[in-house]
Design a protein around this nucleic acid. Structure first.
Lengths: 238, 238
DNA sequence: CACGAAATTACACTACGTGCAAGTTTGCAC
DNA sequence: GTGCAAACTTGCACGTAGTGTAATTTCGTG
């Protein structure tokens, strides 16, 4: 998979990474909105102008994390067998990503951005961009089937709903577990994703489809609550 | 309903309206990104600084249209009986808004923004903001029921999916009908909203739930296609 | 090494968004 | 009406964002 990368391409990739790392570090230390492009460029060892050659804004540089996550989710989705129910494909694709390596940067970005909603714009764009790609992927899949023409409304409603459920699961997970990345916490996330897809697949018939949900999974490892994390921002049950 | 409005409040409302009108007019004439805050302020008869006292950006000023639409949708939702199935409430709330007076500004904003995706950011924010409000509204409704505590995941997944389906319906509608606001076109929109909610309510079981869908509604009045409108941007069935 | 392509950089410029200190309008009491 | 306080508008200044451009450096290739 790793093609022959020229020196130029390696340099560009390294610079790109250095920028996001620097932006991330400054986000950690200074908080959102309390540092400039010049700060990022200096920390990354480049000029201000070069920064803009790579990213159009600080938000875009940070959104690279989210975009990477969503891109790999999409990659997983494309690898699912075409005859599988599409909701099952989506569920499986999201499931593959609930491992520490993948969610760690995303979870930290969540912690740092949700406090100040300044960065949420690029996050929204990233989710929206991914929705568009899912629409394309699903369209291609359905185009392979024999019969009728693809129902564009179905595609768009489905893709949007899947993404919304994924977001809902992550929001709730984060409200419960904060930046906790322990296996128990990830088990909660997995179950939340499963539950959200279950709701979607059953047409949101009942708020309580079955016992043994994420709440139970959390109960199995209740000691993982993050006492030192930022105060819970999403009201849990009120 | 109309309370006693002081002179100050009237002036502020008028100024606010003048700003959005000016921004809209400049968007029409110059296209997105081709006019400045100073232009808007001048056309609205105020200073640049005052503009920023009302809106934090041109995008925000234009998003007032979308926000108004979504707020009234939310208002409709809150008025539905609490014992109604929640998806039916959502469908009914969206249905109330498919009249020319309400969708006309929104449709025009769609035409002008979707060409250049510069403004889509605030649009996304507006949709997201509305999602949050629907979550709150639904939470309040469920809190009134006797039994179990509210399932936050259910709320968020549901609200996000409803909004996504509404967006999908509007996207498809716009791709088909452009800025056409004729009764026939609005009938298509209504049917698309019904179909999207139907997909959601049936768990996206089949791409073709029933005949007599929006395609048929469009066939009943095929002469309403907008020949002069901007070229279709969403690929219809491929 | 030398040459061309690609990347980085410095510089200049417009526009954005905000703090601040005026000036102006509105509401209210006397 | 007069006076006053609060709310609103305005002009100014300042730092920052983002872009065009031309000069400079780095890299691949003959």
């Amino acid at each position: 998979m790793t093609e022959t990368l020229s020196r130029r391409e390696l340099n560009k990739a390294a610079t790109r990474q250095a920028i996001t790392d620097a932006a991330f570090a400054l986000l950690r230390s200074n908080g959102p909105g309390n540092f400039t492009v010049e700060d990022v460029a200096e920390m990354a060892g480049i000029s201000r102008r070069t920064f803009f050659n790579y990213f159009s804004s600080i938000e875009a540089a940070l959104a690279a994390v989210t975009n990477g996550f969503l891109d790999s989710a999409l990659q997983q989705f494309r690898q699912r067998p075409a005859d599988e129910p599409i909701l099952e494909s989506a569920r499986a694709a999201l499931m593959q990503l609930a491992d520490p390596m993948t969610v760690a940067p995303l979870a930290e970005l969540f912690t740092l951005t949700q406090e100040n909603a300044l960065l949420s714009r690029s996050e929204l764009e990233a989710w929206d961009h991914c929705t568009g790609q899912i629409i394309n992927a699903a369209r291609e899949r359905f185009a392979g089937t024999p019969g009728a023409a693809v129902d564009e409304l179905y595609l768009r409603a489905l893709a949007g709903s899947v993404i919304s459920c994924g977001r809902a699961a992550m929001d709730v997970w984060f409200a419960r577990c904060g930046a906790d990345l322990s296996p128990a916490s990830l088990a909660v996330l997995r179950q939340l994703l499963i539950d959200a897809m279950g709701h979607l697949g059953s047409g949101f018939g009942s708020p309580h489809p079955a016992t043994g949900t994420a709440a139970a999974a959390a109960a199995q490892a209740p000691s993982t609550a993050p006492p030192t994390a930022a105060p819970t921002l999403l009201k849990e049950r009120l």
